[in-house]
Design a protein around this nucleic acid. Structure first.
Length: 118
DNA sequence: TCGGTGATTGTTCGT
DNA sequence: ACGAACAATCACCGA
């Protein structure tokens, strides 16, 4: 069993999706960001459907509705979304590949876009 | 070698 | 502008 995140992976702790172009303290300077999640693609395709069947549903309702439907779907239903997630994963993979490769050359300060606020 | 941790991603809606 | 439930993820690093 996948150790439920009982208390680990304290979700919603730091919060903030980084919308403000202001300072930030993370580990990697250019963090190539990870890949999206199947839920991301799933919501992109379902968000309209949810609202279509729940025009009265607000954020809280839709959110729960989405999650509920997501779990209702069969693996075959999620498959397409998972595939998209897998696709994005490859994207992120290359991202880091370049990110890792770029710094690998060690540009020691090379002006090249040096992280931080931009 | 193995584990778990944290970081991230996107939606909606409101004020 | 951002925040918050909803869910997946899964690459990363260290010991």
């Amino acid at each position: 069993m996948p150790k439920e995140t009982t208390k680990t992976t304290k979700r919603k702790a730091a919060v903030k999706t980084e919308k403000a172009p202001k300072a930030k303290a993370k580990k990697d300077p250019k963090a190539p960001k990870r890949a999206l999640s199947a839920y991301m693609f799933f919501s992109q395709d379902w968000r309209e459907r949810i609202k279509a069947e729940n025009p009265d549903a607000g954020f809280g309702e839709i959110g729960k509705l989405l999650g509920a439907k997501w779990k209702e779907l069969d693996e075959s239903e999620k498959k397409p979304y998972i595939e998209q997630a897998a696709r994005d994963k490859a994207r992120a993979e290359q991202e880091k590949t370049d990110y890792d490769g770029r710094k690998a050359h060690d540009s020691a300060g090379s002006g090249d876009g040096d992280d931080d606020d931009e």
